[in-house]
Amino acid sequence: MAHPVAVAGFLVAILPLIATPGASLALLIQYVTEGGRRRALPVVLGTVTGLYVHAALAAAGLSALVMHSSVAFTAIRLTGAVYLIGLGLWTWHTATPAPRRRPRRRTDSVYAQAFLANVLNPKAAAIYLTLAPQFLTPHDPLPAQLLTLATAQALLLTLWLTAWTFLILRATRILQTPRFKRRAARATSAILIALGVRAAVA
């Protein structure tokens, strides 16, 4: 288990990364706008699950292999970019009202979207290959330390997304109008596409 001081230092180091708007926040805004606070849970769970996947891969050394292989890293980066762009285009499409088409419920896919958006992000994996090792001690089991750091990050990220959820819900009357929902969905799609393009050209 990582030392409490190391955990605190790790949280301070990743706070700016968590506070930077990304795919998870974009998805949170979209789905909370559409369906209220109950839609926030699958976004949070999907994102947190992705964090544990990165931590597990780092512990197994698989992420290190990908990061040190330019071909493997490029493949993962482009896969994530294509997914984000595709998700953005799909979000834009579903935001466009169609005659005689009833809105489709996508509750079951929210978790998968948030999970894939995180797990296919090589920058998220890089946290556990470049940043996390600075807070590990070689004489203690590395898997346990990485699990502790991942759990701390998951809790911090959950608090951050929860705070955003309540902030969004504060403006319920505005957010629940069909016009704003369409604009929010299109803004979300634009963010996802931009993130995908940035990941592709990075």
Rank of each mutant, 00 (worst) to 15 (best):
A81W: 04
T162E: 10
I174V: 14
A26P: 03
P141G: 12
A64Q: 11
L155V: 15
V119G: 01
T94E: 13
L78C: 04
L11K: 06
R182A: 08
W92I: 14
G196V: 07
A171Y: 12
P138S: 05
T130W: 09
D140R: 15
N121W: 01
P138H: 06
A98L: 14
T94M: 10
I18E: 09
G88T: 04
G88V: 08
L27H: 07
G86D: 06
R186D: 04
V66C: 04
T151Y: 06
T177V: 01
A152W: 00
A114P: 02
G35M: 02
F73W: 10
A75Q: 08
L65K: 13
N118Q: 14
L28M: 10
G35E: 10
T162H: 06
K123S: 07
V43E: 02
F180E: 09
F10G: 09
R37S: 06
P16N: 06
A75M: 13
A187W: 04
T158H: 04
A163N: 08
A144T: 14
A75T: 13
A40E: 04
F10W: 05
T107L: 00
T49N: 09
T148Y: 07
A190N: 09
F135C: 02
L155H: 06
V201H: 11
G35T: 03
R101H: 13
T47G: 02
A55S: 14
I168G: 05
V82M: 10
G61C: 00
A13R: 11
L192Y: 01
A185R: 02
L87G: 01
S189P: 10
Y52F: 15
T33W: 02
G88H: 03
A154Y: 01
L155S: 13
A81T: 07
A56H: 09
V197A: 13
L45Q: 04
T188S: 11
A150T: 07
Q153T: 10
T107I: 02
A194T: 14
L15Y: 07
R173C: 01
V32F: 01
A60N: 08
A81L: 08
Q145S: 03
A55H: 09
T130C: 00
T96S: 14
V5W: 08
T130I: 15
V32S: 02
L192T: 01
L142F: 07
R186F: 02
R186K: 13
Y83R: 01
A125G: 15
I29S: 05
A202H: 13
A40V: 05
V197I: 15
A98T: 13
L161Y: 01
P16W: 03
A114G: 07
Y83W: 05
M67V: 12
A81F: 04
A126G: 00
L41H: 07
Q30Y: 01
F166L: 15
F166R: 12
L11M: 10
W164H: 08
L149F: 11
N121H: 11
M1L: 14
R38P: 10
L136G: 08
H139I: 09
W90C: 11
